[in-house]
Every structure is written in structure tokens, then in C-alpha cells.
């Protein structure tokens, strides 16, 4: 069953075709990777799926609902979470508070209840903190809970951002270059972590440049070039795909 269905999605920026007529599906419980050279439209495609950008045409179906045209917070409430290519942690907030923001859609204290500090909001508050700490334990960073998130080492910031997305308890997790800026050891740990997340039942769609990571953990790989889909297949088949090889290695200058 497909958790995400993208149909003929198009987005132009002025004269530039950023995403042109891209269609694909992501099966529930799988990891799908989105690869392609710089400027291929990967992040734009992410933004279209998440509602951060409105598509010019085409449809996005998530979990049986047509979500194109929705705002990001509505998409998030429907069960999608994301990380960013350039880490977007909340400064001046501790690591656990950053992760606690991810609990937003699963808690309900509003302005009035929060100001009055009603018993049920205090209970909810404690539950949110416990959940955030649970996630930090799952990620192995529980000792960083009270540190200001943006003062952490780069690799740990990536982990906290991932934790924040996990706190949403998403059905679909969108990871935009989760291994960017990580060293080899951190990259392989990130790969294991993503596989572990998939094993908890979360479907993953990721953009990544690190081919070892992509080929090791993905069930399917989608290749974009100049905004268009050129291949969508199993990792092994992708590695032999003539079009993909051409895009990545360049054509013979013959």
C-alpha cells in the first residue's frame, strides 16, 4: 500500500523548471531515497510535498488524503514530519525543549489553559517532557537534554533535529540530507539509525548525496535530473541504469 502518492507534480520558478511532471509512490514501511545532481529539484520536491511551497499543478496524496495546497502545519497534523538540509533548530532553547516542540500536534494546551496552569495542562506538560527524554534515550543523547541545542556539536544537532521530527510520531518522515556534514563514522551511525526508525514502523523518504548510505538502506531509489524523473527502481537496478550513470558520470565527449 502506498502511503504517499505524487502525481504529475510541477513547479516553475520564473523560467526555470524546478520540478517537471514528477510522479512516484512511497510504500508504507519502506525507505525511499531521492537522489540527483545539485539543482535537480530534490529539496523543491520536498517543499511541495510538505506544503512549504504550492505546486503549479499535480497532486499529492498522503495517507488517503489529498494534501496539495495544505499548509505545513496541516500536513504535520496529518502525520508527516521533516528535517532540513541546513539544520533549523530553535536557538535559545534546550535540546529537550526543541524535541518537545515536536509534540505540538499531540498535545492541546492552548493560551488560556497554559496561562492558568490547569492540572491537566501540568500533567500534559510532564508527559511531553517524559516523551522528549524517551526520544533522547532512543537516540543515545539523553545526557544533552538541558544543553542549548544550537551549542551542540554539528553531528548532535542533526540527531536532535531528527529527534524533533520523531517526536511528531510521524507516519512519513522526510529527511533532507541527513548525513550532510557528518564524517564517515557519523554517517554510518545515521544510516543505522534511519533503518532502526523504519523498523519502528515509520516510512522514510530521504534526500541524500552519500551513495553508500542510499544504496545500503533504501528499498527504492528515485533519480531526478533537471527536475524530471529519470529512474525509479531498486538500488541495484539504479546502479546499472544507463541514464543514471550518464547523469552522474557525464556523457562521453564523443
Amino acid at each position: 500500500m502506498s502511503l504517499l502518492v505524487v502525481k504529475a507534480l510541477c513547479k516553475r520558478f520564473g523560467g526555470l523548471q524546478a520540478v517537471g511532471n514528477v510522479s512516484f509512490t512511497v510504500a508504507a514501511g519502506s525507505i525511499k531515497a531521492l537522489i540527483g545532481p545539485n539543482g535537480a529539484g530534490k529539496t523543491t520536491l520536498f517543499n511541495l510535498i510538505f506544503g512549504a511551497l504550492p505546486p503549479d499543478s499535480g497532486q499529492v496524496w498522503f495517507d488517503g488524503k489529498q494534501t496539495d495546497g495544505w499548509k505545513p502545519h496541516q500536513v504535520a497534523a496529518a502525520g508527516m514530519a521533516r528535517t532540513f538540509q541546513h539544520i533549523r533548530l530553535f536557538p535559545k532553547m534546550t535540546a529537550w525543549e526543541n524535541i518537545a516542540v515536536g509534540r505540538h500536534v499531540h498535545s492541546r494546551s492552548g493560551f488560556l489553559a497554559s496561562m492558568l496552569g490547569l492540572p491537566w495542562t501540568r500533567r500534559e506538560q510532564r508527559a511531553v517532557r517524559e516523551k522528549a527524554l524517551d526520544i533522547m534515550r532512543f537516540l543515545g543523547v539523553e545526557d544533552r537534554a538541558d544543553v542549548e541545542a544550537t551549542s551542540l556539536a554539528y553531528g548532535q544537532q542533526r540527531i536532535i533535529e531528527l529527534g524533533r521530527a520523531l517526536a511528531c510520531e510521524p507516519k512519513l518522515l522526510l529527511l533532507d540530507e541527513p548525513a550532510a556534514g557528518l564524517n564517515m563514522r557519523e554517517t554510518s551511525e545515521m544510516a543505522k539509525l534511519i533503518a532502526r526508525i523504519r523498523d519502528t514502523g515509520v516510512t522514510v523518504l530521504l534526500v541524500e548525496h552519500d551513495m553508500t548510505l542510499v544504496m545500503n538502506i533504501s528499498d527504492e531509489v528515485l533519480v531526478l535530473s533537471y527536475g524530471e524523473k529519470i529512474a525509479d527502481d531498486k538500488p541495484l537496478a539504479i546502479q546499472k541504469h544507463p541514464e543514471v550513470i550518464k547523469v552522474y558520470l557525464g556523457e562521453d565527449d564523443a
Binding site: E97, V105, M115, E124
Partner: peptide, 21 residues
């Protein structure tokens, strides 16, 4: 509170806060 964290999140990174719901 939850609301206070959301407000501070808006201050720090509005797009990320929006993406968190």
C-alpha cells in the same frame, strides 16, 4: 508551556515551527 515553546520556536525558526505543526 506548550504555547510558550511554540512562540519561542516561531522566534527562532518560523518555517521549522510551522513544519512541527
Amino acid at each position: 508551556s506548550r504555547v510558550g515553546r511554540a512562540l519561542r520556536a516561531i522566534h527562532g525558526a518560523e518555517d521549522a515551527a510551522n513544519a512541527m505543526g
